[in-house]
Write a protein that binds this DNA or RNA. Structure first.
Length: 588
DNA sequence: CGACTTTGACCTGCGC
DNA sequence: GCGCAGGTCAAAGTCG
């Protein structure tokens, strides 16, 4: 009955609202510059709606009528355009009804047009009415109908009016049920579709040849300078010629210390190498605009420190068998402090000198949420003491702070590339990532996941059943919009996390005493869609670059710090300029 | 005083 | 079973 009330408000206060442009509860009265624009908008909305109807297969019995309506609709649209050319004000009602306000808006105008013939909105008649049966504007929403009928029935024959009302009510009831059937059918169809899609994915995943398992490629995401970097400590790996198909064009001067982000894919088998090449082609072709952001390196087992192209900082996603091993993400960052700023809160619980490296290895536990199983090991690289190797292990059981999510988006993207290349046996990465049904990785980097996906991390593929369709729909299993948007505007969710004034003791937000969720008003869902984010990132190469950009922003910190240390030593002031991760970046 | 770090002891897994 | 190495625990110390 709310709608009835709203309509009453609408009709009763139309004049006032038109003048004042006030907003009633859930009814928004706007003034628009001209009918031309509105007609254009309505036309597009109407097309969308019909397109949706066609998709749902409900068009069978409406074909003829729809076409007629469309023609009529166009005529009706075009006619008033010619007669109203000025800046005529038009009253528009927007009813916020479960996020479908736009369509409701159309309906209201339709009703208004039918009933208020003298109103200049009469050209809207039937504009959104393909769902009505033509009997006096009978619609699915009885409240609206009642309101309209009442308002227009003042001086008619009462008996006829009552009969008409009854008939209308019945027809309306039928329409309502039809509509519900339609919606249910839609839901069932979608569910079945998703189910089969997931089944296919699962089958493909399970059919992965065992031969691929032992050798898994590594993905290196390199932050900061990309060239002339000291190598990663993998002395066992043989140096091999590195192909460097660049995404941008800024990687021509290898001798210089490029600033940027590079993705280095290591293939450990010819098959994977092939997949990596596909990934390279994919990025190269699809994201040519990412100049200065991404430098894609594809190489076979770059390993020796002298490889030259190894990066100063990297994110190594060590793919593991989802069934048996814990996933690990190794991040290499050149920084002077004890740890890198990854956005999370850590507590040191141990330190050990590992064999082969005189530098002690520090063990940290995630303290963002009590009981979070995520741990990280931080150790300096033997070959280059300025390189900090951070290895994350485990799965967060909580939403990640902004800094961490941005980081996660990048590492997850890297991991996803690797995973796609190693798990997709029949399709190229470009097919998998750009084909609309962007594949969520069979398993995701532990650094990236949170509780919402972790609860079923044994088979993450199944844990995000909506991951593939959600990319298209923009919603995931949890009803959130794509995480990518949140990465693009992280401060909206966790404004505190980028606050440079907050101290940190062991890097990141360790100094923050307040749990990060306390400032979000319970909007934990906001950061709880990383798997979705991964899908979103992987579904579009441009999103990937955006994520990388976000990562850069996050990683550098708005205060221009890669990390901070307890004794106040900040990389922005004291760290080596050689790598220039922070210092070389222009201030925001 | 609480949170965090330090550090030696202890536990566990693995190879021989 | 033994030894080694990695990882964890927990008491003591430190810091804000």
């Amino acid at each position: 009955m709310m709608m009835h009330t709203h309509m009453a408000i609408f009709f009763g206060t139309l004049g006032q609202q038109r003048e004042k442009g006030t907003q009633a509860n859930q009814i928004e009265v706007k003034s628009m510059p001209s009918k031309k624009k509105r007609a254009a908008i309505d036309l597009s909305l109407e097309r969308e709606r019909r397109e949706e109807d066609r998709r749902d297969g409900d068009r069978r019995d409406k074909d003829g009528r729809v076409d007629k309506e469309e023609e009529q609709f166009k005529e009706q649209k075009e006619a008033p355009k010619e007669e109203t050319g000025g800046e005529e004000k038009v009253v528009e009602v927007v009813v916020d009804q479960g996020g479908d306000g736009t369509k409701e808006e159309i309906k209201y105008r339709t009703q208004q047009g039918e009933e208020m013939e003298e109103d200049k909105q009469s050209e809207e008649d039937g504009s959104g009415d393909d769902e009505s049966d033509g009997a006096g504007g009978i619609r699915a929403d009885d409240d609206k109908v009642v309101a309209v009928e009442d308002s227009g029935d003042g001086d008619g024959d009462h008996t006829n009016s009552m009969v008409q009302d009854e008939v209308s009510a019945m027809q309306e009831e039928m329409e309502k049920m039809k509509e519900e059937n339609r919606k249910l059918r839609r839901v069932v169809d979608r569910t079945v579709r998703d189910y089969y899609e997931l089944q296919m994915k699962l089958a493909a995943y399970q059919q992965q040849p065992a031969a691929d398992e032992p050798k898994e490629p590594e993905v290196f995401l390199t932050l900061g300078a990309t060239a002339a970097a000291a190598g990663f400590p993998e002395p066992k790996r043989k140096e091999q010629a590195a192909r460097r198909p660049s995404v941008g064009s800024d990687d021509t001067d290898d001798g210089k210390e490029d600033l940027g982000l590079s993705l280095s894919l290591r293939a450990s088998s010819s098959y994977e190498e092939e997949k990596l090449q596909e990934a390279v082609r994919y990025l190269d072709g699809a994201d040519g605009k990412a100049k200065g952001y991404a430098l894609l390196e594809s190489s076979k087992q770059l390993g020796s420190p002298a490889a030259g192209d190894l990066a100063a900082a990297g994110i190594t996603s060590q793919s593991v068998n989802p069934a048996n091993r814990k996933t690990r993400v190794s991040v290499r960052v050149r920084c002077q402090g004890p740890t890198m700023n990854d956005g999370c809160q850590w507590r040191k619980y141990g330190q050990k000198v590992a064999k082969g490296n005189p530098c002690p290895r520090a063990y940290y536990r995630c303290t963002v949420a009590p009981g979070c199983p995520v741990r990280k090991q931080v150790q300096r690289c033997l070959e280059d003491m300025s390189i900090l190797v951070t290895t994350y292990e485990g799965t967060h059981n909580h939403p990640l702070p902004v800094g961490a999510t941005a980081m996660a988006s990048t590492t997850s993207a890297a991991a996803t590339f690797m995973l796609l290349s190693s798990t997709s046996s029949s399709s190229s990465i470009s097919e998998a990532a750009g084909g609309g049904s962007s594949s969520a990785p069979p398993y995701l980097s532990p650094f990236l996941l949170n509780s919402t996906s972790h609860h079923s991390s044994a088979s993450p593929l199944l844990s995000t059943p909506s991951s593939m369709p959600s990319v298209a729909s923009g919603m995931n299993l949890f009803g959130h919009s794509s995480m990518l948007t949140q990465h693009q505007a992280p401060d909206l969710k966790y404004p505190w996390s980028s606050d440079p004034s907050r101290g940190s003791s062991s890097g990141g937000l360790a100094g923050s005493k307040r749990p990060f969720w306390s400032s979000t008003g319970g909007d934990d869902k906001a950061a709880a869609t990383l798997p979705d984010n991964v899908s979103a990132v992987m579904s579009d190469p441009s999103k990937f670059s955006v994520a990388i950009a976000a990562e850069i922003n996050s990683f550098m910190g708005k205060d221009g710090q890669v990390m901070s240390s307890k004794d106040g030593e900040s990389s922005s002031s004291k760290s080596s300029n050689k790598w220039g991760v922070v210092e070389s970046l222009p201030p925001p």
